[in-house]
Design a protein around this nucleic acid. Structure first.
Lengths: 236, 236
DNA sequence: ACCTGAACACCGTTCAAGT
DNA sequence: ACCTGAACACCGTTCAAGT
């Protein structure tokens, strides 16, 4: 099988389309993610894709499910619930950093696939075993899952396409010229803050991961949840 | 001035374009947000917009800045830092719920406008006054801002366009038929969990806000951050 | 200085036609 | 059953031409 202009691959299924789609998304990002690009990646024609998958939105959902299915979380029974939550969060962040452009989808559209269902069940089990019940169980789930998913999406935010490299330099320079009287906290901690803090970054988390902050966030979320537990059942 | 097919409004500036753009985004969502729709909203032609603003991406950034500028946060000195963080988070959530479709943008693209700069400075000041310093100050900032911004974006996730009402019913029904042996936590808490927990929702946060969970998230984040502070400087 | 009209190079999706 | 080719109704953006 030689590689022609269009090597006209045949005999592929929906899974192959999803794989090709993920490759395209990884390479060119969401704004470059077109059905035509996916078809090219697969060596076929745009219209052919519609035989195998529903459409663009369908493909994006399938990509999310596939990325989540890469997670390998430990058994719920083998460890303390706080450690399990940490492991789960680290795994989630790991698979999303492997496909940074998926971050924007997860925090934008409801995630509903089979993988998400199993994951939800496990998180609920762990929180239940920790002592959360009923309405508070549901809330605790939304606290930890929303924090982890949302935080990683924010970390993985990327520079808008219309802002070029030159803008980056100007922005970094403008931070150095900020008046100290008006911005004492920024100017007083410029090295710790310039390009490293969420409102003052000029590169996304795929290039510049926020490792320190994530570890501190883990402690915050898990420690904070443990506090909630004490609050409701103080005698336990 | 009668309203014709195109009432050819003239003498408007960039701010008017941003306002029209926000109206369009609120009405039809990000996927319906087209330059042509903005032009229609304004009673002018697509090409005219480019005289006033840079383009689509530019408009979206301007909308984010405008929404953030609706926040009114209390003075940093008037209250305890934990209360200030709570007030800030509530304000952020309030303005984003007023423009739910903006949530997807904020967690997708770096936010860099003037309003974000001022907000960042204030958050840093508050955390500094609480006792965070240097690298830990930057990390704490990223913990709270990333959690708040990310969580609200996840809350405001919406149903993908290709999933209709009928899908909603089927999904809710499928949850009720889940095998109890395989999904004990979900089936055992079905009422608390069906449609109310992040992986099991079929409506976005604009329609079904997660109020309970947000209040618990506030306690978790702020309480967790206070723990971080004790950990580093136990004698304070 | 600002607006109009037309065009360019794309999109997602559909559908008749092929094999 | 699966693939191809062409078309439709859109996009964002540019640019010459108007006023």
């Amino acid at each position: 099988v030689t590689v022609g202009r269009k090597r006209s691959r045949q005999g592929f299924g929906p899974d192959d389309v999803v794989e090709a789609a993920m490759a395209v998304l990884d390479e060119v990002g969401l704004e470059g993610f077109t059905m035509r690009a996916v078809a090219d990646q697969l060596g076929t024609y745009p219209a052919t894709l519609y035989w195998h998958v529903g459409g663009r939105g369908d493909l994006l959902s399938a990509i999310v499910d596939r990325v989540l299915s890469d997670m390998s979380v430990p058994d719920a029974e083998t460890m303390h619930w706080t450690d399990w939550l940490r492991a789960m969060a680290r795994e989630y962040r790991r698979v999303l950093h492997a496909h940074p452009n998926v971050g924007g989808i997860v925090s934008t559209e409801l995630v509903v696939g089979q993988t998400a269902l199993v994951l939800t069940e496990t998180v609920l089990q762990v929180l239940q075993s920790a002592g959360f019940q009923g309405t508070q169980l549901a809330a605790a789930h939304n606290v930890i899952v929303g924090s982890v998913v949302g935080w990683v999406s924010v970390e993985l935010s990327s520079r808008p396409a219309d802002l070029d490299e030159e803008w980056t330099d100007r922005f970094a320079a403008s931070l150095r010229e900020l008046p100290a009287t008006q911005f004492p906290a920024i100017t007083g901690n410029l090295d710790a803050v310039n390009g490293r803090v969420i409102g003052l970054r000029y590169r996304g988390g795929a290039e510049d991961p926020l490792d320190n902050a994530f570890e501190m966030a883990l402690d915050t979320w898990v420690g904070g949840l443990a506090l909630q537990l004490q609050r409701t059942r103080p005698g336990d």
